[in-house]
Design a protein around this nucleic acid. Structure first.
Lengths: 236, 236
DNA sequence: AAATCGGCAAGTGTATGCAGTTTGTGCCGA
DNA sequence: TCGGCACAAACTGCATACACTTGCCGATTT
């Protein structure tokens, strides 16, 4: 409902009914993962192949492929002969994922401090400084976009494609549990200040400081998100 | 040929032709990934759906699902409408994967030093000491098995399921490039000594030392494997 | 009355056919 | 002789049909 843009059912399908861009499954994957990530579908909820096929006006074949990919992404859990459900993550596993995220970002920050080009450093600083205005105006949605961008820069700046992959993968799996964290009182300002420490260390070329700052940042995010995780776990 | 155990074509299929254990695709995935990992299939080689279907005596549908999963694992590269090929990794990407592996193992080692139970520490030390005999006898195959086991202990001992997943995933993607590294002169002894440093640091509870030792170990493995990677790249 | 077995319904796993895309090859023109 | 265009073969993407598995409900038996 709130994310119709990614729902391929009428609009997109109507237009490109016969365009074989090979993206039908891709669209379903992003549509379904959006529904999971945004919390429209709760952990444990069944993902029925025929229902999904009807919903997206396709046959079961692409649905199965989409479910397969979502399973590989860790967003859904496939049991042989028993269907697929939205993945249920235990509190322990969730903590482990946040911990991993902290370590991955710490590594990225360290590499960023060592390897970022001048252009990348400048771009990161400019964007970071610009974001301070979003904080002042309390524009949570806009800041969330910037935040994604900032972390993406962190992953890319490490100049290590595989670590970047691991970070993006882990981040996407954590997405369902990070939402709405910026609604917490003052989280916006704190987030920006934590970023500030990371940026300063990177610009100074101090790998260890950047490493530590990034780890601290994610640890705090983890604690801030734990509240929501518990809520969801209880309801599901 | 050398790995018929994992090839489901005649033997396995003949027996369980009608057993629907939901594992047909699983078998294909492990069979194909074995063929890739062991080097039977070279990077860039085409994975034709119909050929694979004939080879494993199944229809194209499960083949497609298997390819999909292998694509998610990063072992094959799927191009829309243009088939699938065994993934080609550039030297830069390969270096990035080894670098990531080094960092992941460093993290695991640090966590191991902090979190391993007494039982785990004792088991690791006993196995490690036992392996010294394999070194003395130059039993390369046996040592390679032990080596896998050792690293698996490292990942599990970190008590962080997600980091363990990331490490195993990265390790499997590196497998094609690590094979035969123990054939290098004296690599066996050096490997054991590097392990020794890691074990000593973990048992001493010295996280940072374990971290550094593990990172150094993988860096050396990376360099030792680079030779083979080049060879294979040239041939393919 | 409780437990077990048989049948039924729902849903997944696999096979096959058709439509559309890509790519290689041969022909035509310059 | 070389470049562009068109056609055809091969292959992928999706749809549909069928086979098998699983879980549930009720009837029968102990």
């Amino acid at each position: 409902m709130a994310i119709e843009g990614t729902e391929p059912k009428e609009a997109a399908r109507g237009k490109r009914k016969l365009i074989r861009a090979g993206t039908t499954v891709d669209q379903m994957v992003s549509a379904i993962s959006d529904r999971i990530v945004t919390g429209v579908m709760r952990p444990g909820e069944k993902l029925d192949e025929v229902s999904l096929a009807e919903r997206y006006k396709v046959s079961r074949t692409p649905v199965r492929e989409a479910l397969s990919r979502l399973g590989a992404m860790g967003l859904v859990d496939r049991r042989p002969n028993r269907g697929a459900i939205v993945a249920i993550v235990s509190p322990a596993h969730l903590a482990s994922m946040f911990e991993s995220m902290a370590e991955l970002e710490a590594i990225c920050a360290r590499f960023c401090a060592q390897r970022m080009t001048q252009k990348e450093r400048r771009a990161m600083e400019i964007e970071h400084q610009a974001a301070s205005q979003l904080v002042a105006r309390r524009e949570e949605a806009a800041y969330e976009l910037f935040n994604s961008d900032f972390h993406a820069r962190l992953y890319s700046g490490a100049h290590s494609p595989h670590i970047r992959d691991l970070a993006l993968q882990t981040r996407s799996r954590l997405a369902p549990f990070r939402r709405a964290q910026f609604r917490l009182d003052g989280r916006l300002q704190k987030s920006w200040r934590e970023h500030d420490l990371i940026v300063a260390a990177i610009l100074a070329g101090d790998g260890e400081a950047a490493c530590a700052a990034a780890r601290d940042h994610m640890t705090i995010v983890s604690e801030a998100s734990a509240v929501f995780a518990h809520d969801e776990g209880g309801e599901a």
